[in-house]
Simulated assay, not measured.
Amino acid sequence: MEFSLIAKHFTRATPGAVLGVGDDCALLAPTPGMQLAVSSDMLLEGRHFSPQDSPAGIGHKSLAVNLSDLAAMGATPRWATLAIALPEENDAWLTAFARGFFRMADQHGIELIGGDTTRGALTLSITVMGEIPPGQALRRDGAQAGDDIWVSGVLGSAAMALAYRQGRLFMEQIDAAKVLPALYLPTPRVALGIALRGLAHSAIDISDGLLADLGHILERSGKGAQLAFDALPTLPVVQTYLHETVARECVLAGGDDYELCFTAPADRREAILAAAASADVSVSRIGQITAEPGLTVLAADGQPLPYDKTGYDHFAA
């Protein structure tokens, strides 16, 4: 059953690989002179997605969140492996999942070259591989004092959608419909990451929350930061709920945005905007890197805005 399942749902031509699905290992020939960027993510039913979620949407998101890691490094996607545990064989579910997965794969030129299947609680584990010229990777440890801090797209939509679904935030249905796509169908900023090579000093994707993920840059770079809350980009519908504490937490620490947070010198502002335009994505300047450690968020009146939560805890109950 395992091999027929793989053959039916996950075997496709892989012209970019020497050998793809069907043997003990895949065989790859990276482009000469390029470095490999490799990342893995695991998604569990009940923790990262709901049993009621669309399988096509799960397929989309499972690959998108991995591609976001490649985007954060400025890597060009090439290959992926997929390991999937299923409580039982479900042909209709797998057909829809594969449709969403391969739609995302085709958008970014990534080939599925192998993986594994077994029986168990529904779990997805994906490894992605990309390529990048030596010395051009966007890393977390390169932020410098005086750098501008930028983010792509908008923040807080996915977290607000989850809060709405969990009953922690009450929204009008017409408003909820505007944020739900961010939760189910995130967009990895691959083209922007590639365009930022040679421009950004550091970068990370926002998966656990802006404050938590920016905090990783600050820790690795030995720097601090000052952010302006009013500069954080959000959908207009999100702004109408910012009087609620939970909504402000969604913007600052909600996670699941899969936008890029990056730093760059002030004299590269025009080049950053041009890079974003070439990638067809908006970017916003939200603060500055400081030499002194610590992360401060300023309210509109210039006073520090208190916050208790910085991001998602993978080991919280």
Rank of each mutant, 00 (worst) to 15 (best):
S4H: 03
I6E: 00
F10D: 01
A13W: 02
P15M: 07
G16F: 09
V18C: 06
G20D: 01
A29G: 08
P30E: 13
P30M: 00
M34L: 10
L36A: 14
V38D: 04
S39T: 11
S40M: 11
H48M: 09
F49H: 00
Q52N: 13
D53S: 13
I58R: 07
V65T: 14
N66I: 00
L70S: 02
G74D: 02
T76N: 12
T76E: 15
R78H: 10
R78D: 04
W79E: 04
T81P: 00
L82A: 03
A85M: 04
L86D: 06
P87D: 05
E88W: 11
E88T: 10
D91F: 07
T95I: 09
A96R: 05
A98F: 00
R99Q: 15
G100H: 01
G100R: 01
F102T: 03
D106F: 11
Q107P: 00
G114Y: 04
G115A: 09
D116S: 12
L122M: 11
L122P: 02
T123D: 10
S125Q: 12
S125L: 12
T127W: 01
T127S: 04
V128A: 08
A137H: 11
A137Y: 03
D141N: 15
Q144C: 14
Q144R: 15
A145V: 04
A145F: 10
D148Y: 00
V151W: 07
V154H: 06
L155F: 02
G156I: 06
S157P: 04
A159T: 07
M160G: 09
L162A: 13
A163R: 10
A163P: 06
G167R: 08
F170I: 12
Q173N: 14
I174R: 15
V179P: 02
L180C: 05
L180R: 14
P181F: 09
Y184W: 10
Y184I: 08
Y184T: 14
G193S: 05
A195R: 07
R197Y: 13
G198A: 10
S202I: 00
I206F: 02
A212V: 02
D213L: 05
S221L: 05
L227T: 01
D230N: 14
A231M: 02
P233L: 02
P233H: 00
L235K: 03
L235I: 05
T240M: 13
L242V: 06
L242G: 13
R248H: 06
D256I: 06
C261L: 13
P265W: 01
R269L: 14
E270A: 15
A271C: 09
A275V: 09
V283C: 11
Q288I: 15
Q288G: 14
T290N: 08
A291H: 09
E292F: 13
L295E: 06
L298F: 13
A300W: 09
G302H: 10
Q303N: 14
D308L: 14
D308C: 10
K309M: 14
T310C: 05
G311P: 00
D313P: 11
A317K: 11
A317F: 09
